[in-house]
Structure formats: structure tokens, C-alpha cells
Design a protein around this nucleic acid. Structure first.
Lengths: 197, 197
DNA sequence: GTTACTTCCTAATGTCTCTAGGAAAGAGGC
DNA sequence: GCCTCTTTCCTAGAGACATTAGGAAGTAAC
């Protein structure tokens, strides 16, 4: 009998495809094995268990997403870069809903595996360096990064969960939110604690 | 043999407690039945299936969260109300992580059940009426509501997922984000499309 | 106390995760 | 080619869970 030629990466990729098609929580060992034409038990050579597989999918997604963002923002600065960043982020989530979901689960990933994946670390660097154009110093920089991430992440999440039921097109709100975010970053230092009401 | 006195609400509440203790995706029919001292099959009289149970937990959480927010914002206005709203929101998520998680799943809830639950609708009304103090007209109002929800939801989510690894205390960033949000809402009309860089 | 409804149980099926142990494919040395 | 070592994949099987069908025993109305 010919070998199926499995590797951890191939198992992960198959899981990721499945996640995009049927949702992350329908990604089972059985389903992945079925799709690969292999018995369930065979997967355990390459992947520790279901949780490990999910972690690997999350890492794959983080890497892919980071690459998209890096490409989109390359050579851009200021609001241009912000919009490119945000759109690349959102586009990835739309194109790969299952993978994107995987990035959100409370990370209980094998630390060794995590250390080898460039995605998460690079994503942070990318974000900080992009926001550096707004001339913020610590701790403002970190606060701004957190705010920006919260907004993007939250928007995409709510959108995916069907949380925007109003008639107003989501696309229009998105553009408006990015405008607002840009304005906010530019005037970050102006609205500290006790600014006039 | 005495009856256990089950009702849909009691099953839901037990599921919610379990969710807060061990995480939403460890809420199983078996586990809920065990805690209630009842066999798995007995639950199916009160709850259609696992998905239905999860939906009910989500609705319960939405109701509870809305009540907390309503209490917190009662009699307040402007930034005071905004901060009270946001803190009540976040406090609820901290106090009931499992229930809060339930509110985030793409809602595939029994429409009839949804119609009877006051939470979701009331939450929207509450938000709109709070933001009305910032004197925004449609479609700005809806955009602002969406931005605010995105930010709060995203921040709490990232926080829960351990996404804020930096040394800067999360609490401080939170306060700063609320300041920024308030400033943003006050000057919402000022930063439209082509504002000066 | 009879009737009817509801609640809860037993029993059973199918799916899924994960482990143990075996067979066979492929690589390298001779 | 043949032997050996490693890795890959399989068979078998235990244990958890979701879900359905059908039966027995409480409870309420009359």
C-alpha cells in the first residue's frame, strides 16, 4: 500500500481548509483523516491531538495574515498604511473565516512551536512600526496599538457573528471607522484624562 | 423516585454556571446532567439539543449583561455614562467568562426564543440612547455605535485571549481607550473623509 | 381513583478522541 | 540484492458524548 505522504504541515493545511469550509469547531480528527484518505489514528503521528491541530491552524493563519498585511502596507505610510493594514486584515478574515476564528482562541499553543512561528511576533512589529508614523511615545504607543487592534478585531468579529443588523451598509461604517481611527491616532496626545467636555 | 424538578431555565442556568467554571466548549449535555443529578437523556425534554442549550445560555447572558449596563448607566450622561457602560460591560465579561463567550457565537438561535428575550433588543436601545447625548444624526449614529461596540468587544476579547502581552497594565490602556473613545464621539463630525493630514 | 400529561429512566446507536501494538514502506550500509 | 533501522500507516479497542425510542412512575384534573 502506497503511503499517503503525510506531514504535520499537510495535516494542518487540510484542517485549515476544512475550517474555512465548515467552521473551526467542525474540524475533527475524523474529518481531516477522511479528507486525506487516511484513518484517524494515523494523524496522531504528526499532530499531538485535536487541540494541537487547532493551535497549528492558528499559527498558520497568523503567518498568512501577517504576510498579507506586510505586502499590503509595504511602501505606504500614514493613513494610507493604516487603511491598507486594516483592509488586508479584514479581507483575510473574510477569505478565511475558519482560519481567522482559530487565531482568536485563547492561545494554549506548544511554546516550542510558537517560538518557531514568525507570524505573531512579526505582526506585532509590523503594527508598532506602522503606528510609529504617528509619533507616539510609550506608553501612548502601546495604548494606541491596543486600541487599534481592539477596534479591528472587534469590528470583524461582530460582522462575522452577524452583529450588525442595521440597514446601514457595513462597508460604509468600516470606512468611517477607519477615518475616525486615523483622526484619533493623529490627535492621541490631545485627549488625555481631563480634557474639556 | 422523586423528580428533579427540571425546567428549561434550570438547565440553562446550570449550563451557564458550568460555562463560567470550565469554559463554554466544555459544557456538554453529560456534564450538565451530571451536575443536576440526572441522566443525559432527561435534558432533551427541556432543551432541543446542545446547540439550543448554548443559544439559551447566550440569551441568558445577553439579558444579564443588559441589566447590569442599564443599572450602571441609569441617571448618568455624557462621558460618565460612557465609562459606566463600558465598565459594566467589561466587568460582566470578567465575572462570567463562559456566559460572555456564549454571546459571541454566530447566533443561530431559535427565532421564537429570541423574540421573547428582551436582552438583545434592549441592549441596542440602551446603546443608541446613550450615544444620543453626543448629538449625532444618522448615519453617523449607527457608525458610532458600531465603532464603540467594536472597540469594547474587541478589547475584552483580546484581553480574555491573552492578546495583551506587553508590560503596560491592561487597566491603564483601558482607561486611555475610553478617554479616546469619548473624544472621538465628541468630534465625530469633524473627521470625515478628506480631513487634513 | 381513573385518566391524561409530564418527567425521568433504561437501552441502544453512531460519532468522535486517543492509545497500543503490528505490518510494511523507504533509507542507508554492505 | 539483502539486512537493519526508522517512520508511516493500519487494525483493534476503550471511553466520552449526542441523540432517539420507548417505558415507568410521578402529578394534576376530574
Amino acid at each position: 500500500m502506497a503511503r499517503a505522504g503525510l506531514t504535520a504541515d499537510r495535516v494542518t493545511l487540510t484542517g485549515a481548509e476544512l475550517a474555512d469550509e465548515v467552521g473551526l469547531d467542525h474540524v475533527t480528527m475524523s474529518a481531516v483523516a477522511r479528507r486525506l484518505g487516511v484513518k484517524d489514528a494515523s494523524l496522531y503521528v504528526h499532530v499531538r491531538n485535536l487541540e494541537d491541530l487547532r493551535g497549528r491552524i492558528a499559527l498558520l493563519a497568523a503567518d498568512e495574515k501577517t504576510i498579507r498585511i506586510a505586502e499590503a502596507t509595504a511602501g505606504r505610510a500614514g493613513k494610507d498604511a493604516l487603511v491598507a493594514y486594516a483592509n488586508a486584515y479584514r479581507d483575510y478574515a473574510h477569505a478565511h473565516p475558519g482560519r481567522y476564528t482559530a487565531t482568536q482562541i485563547p492561545m494554549q499553543i506548544d511554546p516550542e512551536l510558537l517560538a518557531r512561528a514568525p507570524g505573531p511576533r512579526r505582526a506585532i512589529e509590523l503594527t508598532y512600526s506602522m503606528l510609529r508614523a504617528y509619533h507616539l511615545d510609550e506608553p501612548d504607543l502601546t495604548d494606541a496599538v491596543r486600541m487599534m487592534r481592539s477596534m479591528l478585531h472587534g469590528f470583524i468579529n461582530l460582522e462575522a457573528a452577524g452583529g450588525f443588523a442595521h440597514a446601514r451598509p457595513v462597508e460604509d461604517s468600516w470606512v468611517r471607522c477607519l477615518d475616525a481611527l486615523h483622526a484619533l491616532l493623529e490627535n492621541w496626545h490631545a485627549h488625555r484624562e481631563g480634557d474639556p467636555a
